[in-house]
Amino acid sequence: MTLESVIFSVLAASAVGSALLVVTRRNPVMSALYLIVNFFCLAGLYLTLHAQFIAIIQILVYAGAIMVLFVFVIMLLNLGDERKLSDGVSWKKIVAAGFCAALLMEFVYILIYSEPSPAVMSASMATEIGTVEYIGSQLFTKFLFPFEITSLILTAAIVGAIVLAKRKLD
């Protein structure tokens, strides 16, 4: 077992474990914390794929910004007794669980038995493309227009969020 595969196994196991905890915890704060753990694991996995830039912004944007927002909202709403929302087993959950299990099996079946696509890269490229310089140059040349559009989306989101969350429009 190589070092890489050991690292992958550890990260993968903790990612799956934390994900399961996210969806099973009753308390949203706990879920949020486990989600942060999950994001860190994913950032580690990105690193093993030589995607340094993505790994960094995964931590900065997701774990840092988005999750702070979540925790903030949870605290703001001050949800009292969460037990009210914890639910027993219903027909819907059984069906949903069945579907999800079936979906997972199908995914795995497809991934294992489908033909791998012919590889077209050289190993040296893999380490280069993940760097900040490379992605930055790509973003500001080839993907300049979509990049600028994202700023528009974010502006719209800010305005929308304010409008929606405001108590009263005046």
């Binding site: 912004i57 997701y62 409008v163």
Partner: peptide
């Protein structure tokens, strides 16, 4: 992206993150 040696995948992830941020803001609102 890593397999194909093509940066487009990572760029796409970048955009997904931006959209996710926007979506989180709106959704939480």
């Amino acid at each position: 992206s890593a397999q194909l040696g093509d940066v487009t995948g990572q760029i796409l992830v970048f955009f997904v993150m931006t959209v996710a941020a926007a979506e989180a803001a709106i959704g939480l609102a």
